[in-house]
């Protein structure tokens, strides 16, 4: 596998037919033969940032066409990621329906590429983990990865602008890989248990891995929450999962 790739900012058609900025990374090689799957990376609440774009490039290095839509482009076009995140938060955050539309637009963009085999997976961390599950409940996707998304199950305290996804889980369209830290409180191990029980009861395909000595944001390399062993194992699980589901 070549580690040569290209990356660029592109425009996709997102929710409401809005033009949405997105970061696209593609492996080098023939660009017209339907040879590979695609991955939509959903950025976390801190925004469309360098760390997320590094993940997009990593998926290209793993052999996928990968894309991340800027979920805050409407509130803050051209702004620094942290300023955009602050502006979006002050305006109430990303509505679930808009998220689904933007991820759907990103998936359609990937499927329109000459290299696409028609299969698209989605991955998100933290708030993006919940978003990945949401997208897999509402869109035609072939794989979903939830990295410690809070409020997929469990009680959502009042006055939050979101709901849990329990009522949507019966519509889950894709196998789900879940990666969680046992020291996390949101989602807590009990909330992960609840999700696993629901998936088992409804016969969904899933694969969960739970890491000791790890809490929330275990993949975030520039934060104190980073856990090397868990993150390294997690990346191997993600690569193997996509290799199986998106082939």
């Amino acid at each position: 596998m070549s580690d040569t790739l290209s990356a660029a900012t592109v425009t996709i058609t997102g929710a409401g037919d809005d033009e949405v900025e997105a970061y696209l990374a593609r492996p080098e090689g023939a660009q017209d033969a339907p040879s590979r799957g695609g991955v939509v990376v959903i950025h976390h609440m801190p925004g469309y940032d360098r760390a997320t774009k590094e993940m997009v490039r990593r998926f290209a290095e793993l052999g996928y066409d990968a894309i991340c839509p800027n979920l805050y482009v409407r509130e803050a076009p051209g702004a620094d990621p942290d300023d955009a995140a602050a502006a979006a938060r002050a305006q109430g955050g990303v509505p679930d329906d808009r998220l689904v539309g933007d991820v759907g637009g990103a998936a359609a963009y990937l499927r329109a590429l000459g290299t696409s085999n028609g299969k698209v997976g989605v991955i998100g961390h933290c708030s993006g983990g919940r978003h990945a599950v949401l997208a897999a409940c509402r869109l035609d996707l072939q794989a979903a990865v939830d990295c410690y998304g809070a409020f997929v199950t469990g009680e959502v305290p009042p006055e939050r602008p979101i709901t849990n996804l329990v009522d949507q889980l019966p519509h889950l369209s894709a196998p789900l890989l879940g990666l969680f830290g046992n020291e996390d409180t949101h989602p807590s191990p009990e909330e992960v248990d609840e999700l696993e029980q629901i998936l088992r009861d409804q016969g969904s395909a899933y694969e969960f891995h739970r890491y000791d000595d790890a809490g929330h944001a275990l993949f975030t390399v520039d934060r104190p929450s980073y856990r090397v062993a868990a993150a390294n194992d997690g990346w191997e699980r993600i690569a193997a999962f996509f290799d199986t589901q998106l082939a």
Binding site: H44, D83, A84, A86, R89, A90, R223, P224
Partner: peptide, 29 residues
Amino acid sequence: ATVYYDHPVHAMADHTLNIDLADPSRGPG
């Protein structure tokens, strides 16, 4: 002013009390 307890961008902590003092009419920056 926007006030929230959540992940910081820079501070070395898992969560912090974040305050944004802003003039949205002048843009996100």
